[in-house]
Each structure stands twice: as C-alpha cells, then as structure tokens.
Amino acid sequence: MSVGTIHGVGLGPGDPDLMTVRAHRLLREARYVAYFRKAGRTGQARKIIKGLLRDDVVEYPMEYPVTTEIALTDPEYNRRLSGFYADCAAHLLKLAQSGKDVVVVSEGDPFFYGSFMHIYERVRDQVPVQVVPAVTGMSAAWSATGEPITWGDDILTVLMATLSEAELSKRMKSTDALVVMKIGRNIGKVCAALKAAGKFDDAWLVEYASMPEQTVQKLSAAQGRAVPYFSIIIVHGQGRRP
C-alpha cells in the first residue's frame, strides 16, 4: 500500500482571496482536512475555508486542551499541549500510513509561529510531508497601514507580547522596524515597553488584518481598552531611500 502525504497548508491572514493557488487547489481536492480550534469554537481556519471543501470531506478538528487558562510558565501548560500534539500526530500518521492524503490547514504561514510546526516535528521522518507557505498576518497588517514596513537597510524585529516588559523594551530599542504579535491581555505591558523604547507615538494597532472586521489606528488612540487576539502592532522603519 502506498503511503499518503500530510500537507501543511497555510491559509494566509484571513481573507480567502489572499490564499495561494496551491492551497486553494489542495483544499478543493482534499478528502481529509484537519484544523486547529479552541474547544467549542468553529475556529478561524475553518471559517476561512468555508465553501471550499468537497461534499464528502472528512473533517478532523483538533481542539486545544488549554489556551490562556494556564500561564505559559506553568509546567502543566507544556505537558497538556505535548500530549495533545502527540495524539493529533498519531491520528494523522495513521491516515497517511493507510495511504490517505491529509490537508492540515493553518492560519497565516505554517512555519511562522504556527501550531502545525508541532505536528511536523512529530511526523516528518515517518511519512511524506509537504508545506505550502502563505501570506503572513503581519504582511497583511503593515499593508493595511498604507506604509512600507522597511526601507533600505532597516532591521525588522518580530516580537511576541508574551515576553517580559524588560525584554520587549530592550529589543524594541535596538531595531528600526517592529512587529509585535500575540497581544491580547498583554497590551498594557507592550505599551509600557514601547514608551520606554521611545517608539510608542509611532506605533500602529491593526486588528483583524485583511478580515471584514479590520481596523487600523494609532496605538495611542486605543489606550485603555482590551484588544482582540488577532491584533498586531506595527512600527515602520524610516531607513535609507533614494
């Protein structure tokens, strides 16, 4: 029996029109489709592919056992997620080893802070795996501001808002252009770090980049309110140009 392939397919930032031709083709043809989601939710990836799947598709929703209920530093967080990814990988391996191709969809790009990476590491040496890259959420965010993110020799730094305020501030000070992701409840810490780095007044907040709910505003205008998970902070570089 021939072995199937696991396809890690990036869907892009949210707008189905920004999906690659290859991703679209694989989804149209897929008999088995897997996607991540929070328990009890449809999941953003599943929303993006609505209407693309064949009538006889077999879906495999992979529901996170924990998201924000436990601190990232708690050993229980990693223990639960490790078991979850192992179970998901085992299921996908079983399908592929029985000769079935499986499409695992990811928001954004599969190799850019995506959950698919944890599956990839567990299956890559056992069955064929193909990764389909995609437009990242940060690309959509800086495009939404209407300004280039980097000029000339600008250095671009991508930071996770889950870092400590001191670490955020240190790295913000040493870069020209900046992207901050995974903001959510960390918005206060990020704002404080930007102020310490002297970059707060230049920062933009983009929510739901490329999605119908998209908003774009200076970060200073959003102070004092909560921001959604799909939020990205942008500071544009101002480097060399002809």
Rank of each mutant, 00 (worst) to 15 (best):
K100A: 14
E213A: 14
G237C: 05
T5M: 05
D87N: 14
T175M: 09
A89S: 13
V132D: 12
P110D: 13
R22G: 12
H236I: 00
G198H: 08
T136L: 06
A30F: 01
I187H: 09
H118W: 13
E107T: 11
S82P: 08
I119M: 07
G108I: 02
V179T: 08
N78G: 15
V123A: 10
V21A: 14
P75I: 02
P148N: 07
D87F: 03
M138Q: 09
T157A: 13
D125A: 09
G12A: 08
H7C: 04
Y229I: 00
G40W: 01
P212H: 09
K218Q: 14
R31C: 10
M1P: 02
V180P: 02
L72I: 03
Y208F: 11
A71S: 15
V135D: 13
T20M: 06
P242S: 05
R37N: 14
R41G: 12
S210A: 14
K100L: 08
A193T: 09
Q217A: 14
A134V: 03
K189I: 05
I70T: 12
G198V: 03
V102Q: 07
M172W: 06
M138S: 13
S210D: 10
W142P: 01
W204P: 11
L93G: 07
I70V: 13
M138L: 13
I70W: 11
R31F: 04
L168F: 12
V66N: 02
P133A: 06
A226V: 00
E76V: 00
R171M: 08
R124L: 05
R41F: 13
G83I: 03
K94N: 14
T67G: 04
I234M: 06
R185H: 15
A222L: 03
Q238P: 05
A166E: 15
A209V: 03
A89W: 06
E165S: 12
T157P: 04
I49R: 04
V180I: 13
D202Y: 06
V227C: 04
A196L: 08
S169Y: 02
S174M: 11
E63S: 15
Q130W: 03
A209E: 05
R79A: 15
L26G: 11
L81H: 09
G10V: 04
L92D: 07
K189N: 14
L26H: 04
F111T: 08
T73W: 06
A23P: 01
S98I: 00
C191I: 13
R28G: 15
R122P: 13
T68D: 15
L81F: 10
P110L: 09
V102D: 09
Q126H: 12
I234Q: 10
F200K: 00
P16K: 07
L194S: 09
P61I: 00
T215H: 09
P242G: 08
T215Q: 13
R22Y: 02
G184I: 00
G137S: 15
A177P: 00
C88I: 00
I183S: 10
A196K: 12
H24L: 06
I187S: 07
